[in-house]
Simulated assay, not measured.
Amino acid sequence: MDATELQDAVARLTRAYQRREPIDPLVKTFPDATPEDAYRVQQDQVRAWVEAGDAVRGHKVGLASAAMQRQMGVDQPDYGHLTGSMFHLEHQPIPTTRFLQPRIEPEIAFVLGSALRGPGVTVADAVRAVDFVLPSLEIVDSRIRDWRITLFDTISDNASSGGVVLGSSPTALGAVDLRLAGATLHVNGELVATGAGGAVLGSPINALVWLANTVGPLGVTLEPGHVVLPGSMTAAQPVRPGDTVVATMAGLGSVTAVFAPQEEK
């Protein structure tokens, strides 16, 4: 993509955010764009958000399961940025008007106690850098109409990020086997999905290693205090105004997201 095409893609996504209206897949307009181009689009948006007063507070890893990679025709995950405005308090009503077509996923969130910067980060380095883990719910959202996304679309759209709800009970990393930790996801009291940490690249810690080694050569350090979402333990589930979602994870406890009724702005 040349500079004009890059600006056009950023403008299309920016309008989707501002108007709360999804757009057609970007890949239709930019069929020859590469994943590297998509990250340039993503980074330009994040830069604009920071200049407007938001702040990067972490990262997310997407396409972390083998099933999602097969669906998208890729052989590695992607990543996006988490900004301060994306974080919502547990049990407090989340305005649904800020989302276009939200879905929700249970994830084991890492909170870093020390910096991680690749390349060359090992599992041992990643384990040492984690301060504690929390149960979390990621709200994924897409500015692309009907979720008809390609790899280029989702990367450009900040890896389809929407929001984050963190649980309030920290657990030491060594107190739980991330691979075997099971998860249940309930929406309005109904069990809708089950999964385990092993669905995330074999172990969520592998996603953290991948992220550090991927963003490091780009000059990005995973900072102390940052939150890293390594990928979903189950399939994403749609959410609607008024829904209450509870994720329960073995050894970690639970986390609850409450979505405000439609009439609340």
Rank of each mutant, 00 (worst) to 15 (best):
R117F: 00
H226Q: 15
G182A: 14
Q71D: 08
H59P: 10
K60Y: 04
P106N: 03
A207K: 06
T234K: 05
V140D: 06
P261F: 09
D2Q: 04
V133A: 06
R20P: 04
V27R: 04
T122F: 08
T256K: 12
I155T: 05
A11C: 05
V123N: 10
T154K: 03
T96D: 08
M249C: 05
Q43V: 08
A260M: 12
P241V: 00
L211P: 03
G163W: 04
G253K: 04
G62M: 01
T214S: 09
A38F: 12
T96H: 09
G195W: 08
I205K: 00
G197Q: 09
V140S: 08
E105Q: 06
D44N: 06
Q7R: 14
T256I: 10
A175P: 00
S168L: 14
Q237V: 11
H88M: 11
V41A: 05
G120V: 07
R103I: 08
P170R: 05
I139P: 00
A129R: 01
G62R: 00
V10K: 03
R19C: 11
V140F: 10
E223L: 13
P238D: 10
D78Y: 03
T248C: 12
L180I: 15
R117H: 09
V187A: 02
P238A: 10
D177I: 08
L6C: 09
A52D: 12
D32C: 03
A55P: 03
E190G: 14
L6V: 09
Q237A: 08
L26A: 02
T29R: 15
D243S: 10
P22D: 03
R47K: 14
L100C: 10
V133D: 02
V192Y: 10
T154G: 07
T34L: 12
V176T: 06
D75T: 05
V176D: 04
Q43K: 13
K265F: 13
V255C: 14
R145L: 14
L173F: 03
T29G: 14
P102Q: 10
T221Y: 05
H81S: 05
Q71L: 14
A38I: 10
A172E: 15
L208D: 01
N158F: 11
T171G: 00
P204W: 02
E107I: 01
D24T: 07
V255S: 05
H226Y: 13
T194D: 01
A196R: 13
R103N: 06
D157G: 05
D2I: 06
W49D: 10
V245S: 07
D8S: 14
A207W: 11
L151G: 00
V130Y: 04
V127R: 15
V239S: 06
P25Y: 07
K265I: 15
E51G: 11
D78P: 01
V215R: 00
W147H: 12
A183M: 15
S203G: 01
R70T: 02
G197A: 11
